[in-house]
């Protein structure tokens, strides 16, 4: 079934020919333990494969060789996928786009940790944080609100709907006053920025044992809530966003802190109690602002 690659060697250096097939056939080289730049690492990957939303999935084992420590985790998966295509198999589906750690598209649970062992996004996780011979488990974000679409791809539309419920300042184009009309104290501006850094990747939900989106929601509530521009909608924003968050089937907060540990952008755990305070304040004020 394997097509010859010799004719395309020029364009696929090393991408397919030094990889091993999934059935564990004898491996030609003998370098087992070598970590050298020339041979690279050999890894066993156990990846969640699921053909479609309604179909059964399972952890499937693959072995990859020649993995350079300078590769990102996604480069490593690219290498595996190129080989799978060459073998006529379907490549592993995963979301990714900017590969600079800012778009929030990528995300997988690596060895039980959202985005893997480093406090960064999966695209910025490099293989030097793994050892030759490692077995790595790769799974999709797990939460009721994030149904699996295929393999490692999940539907995170629930997060968009939480923003749509109130994660904005109503300022139709053209209605804005002059930018310097309202000064914003620097500490407030800095707090707003620190919370606005959220990339919406969903790692907080994936890491939370309750599948809660509290950190995500709190980041936006705090970002807009500390700014004078956000004051008019302060109460309705938090009430509507929390309602949407609950309606989407996210769990509640049990103060475990896994979300903040997993967050690649360092959104502070305290933002959750900030949101709780905002919510209770809005309730005291009688609901709608």
């Amino acid at each position: 079934m394997n097509a010859p690659h010799s004719t395309s060697d020029r364009t696929q250096p090393g991408a397919t020919d030094d990889a091993e097939t999934t059935d564990g056939a004898a491996h030609g080289t003998t370098d087992g333990a070598a970590h050298g730049a020339t041979d690279g690492m050999e890894l066993t990957l156990r990846i969640w494969r699921q053909p479609g939303p309604e179909e059964q999935g399972a952890m499937t084992t693959y072995r990859v060789t020649g993995i350079s420590p300078d590769m990102s985790f996604l480069d490593m998966l690219d290498t595996l996928n190129e080989r799978l295509i060459a073998e006529g198999d379907e490549p592993v589906a995963f979301d990714h786009d900017c590969r600079e750690g800012i778009c929030g598209a990528c995300g997988m649970v690596i060895n039980g940790q959202a985005h893997g062992p480093q406090p960064t996004t999966t695209c910025q996780l490099h293989m030097r944080h793994f050892d030759d011979g490692d077995t790595i488990d790769v799974e999709p974000w797990r939460a009721a609100a994030f149904p699996v679409i295929r393999d490692l791809v999940v539907d995170r539309g629930a997060l968009d709907r939480v923003i749509g419920a109130g994660g904005y300042i109503t300022a139709p184009t053209g209605s804005a006053p002059e930018a310097h009309a309202t000064a914003v104290p620097k500490p407030a501006a800095d707090t707003a920025f620190a919370h606005a850094e959220c990339i919406g990747c969903g790692a907080c939900v994936a890491a939370c044992p309750n599948g809660a989106a509290m950190l995500f929601t709190a980041a936006k509530v705090v970002h807009l809530g500390v700014l004078p521009q956000g004051a008019p909608e302060r109460e309705s924003r938090v009430l509507d966003m929390v309602t949407a968050m609950d309606d989407e089937g996210f769990g509640g907060c049990t103060q475990v802190g896994a979300c903040a540990t997993a967050c690649p952008k360092g959104i502070p755990f305290e933002s959750i109690s900030d949101m709780n305070r905002e919510y209770l304040r809005a309730v005291r004020k009688g609901g709608r602002g």
């Binding site: 969640w48 039980g112 939460a143 009721a144 609100a145 309750n210 769990g251 049990t254």
Partner: peptide, 14 residues
């Protein structure tokens, strides 16, 4: 609610 929000756990053990 919390248990329903995370119906499938992670296969990774460790």
């Amino acid at each position: 609610r919390d248990i329903a929000a995370r119906p499938v756990g992670y296969a990774h053990r460790g």
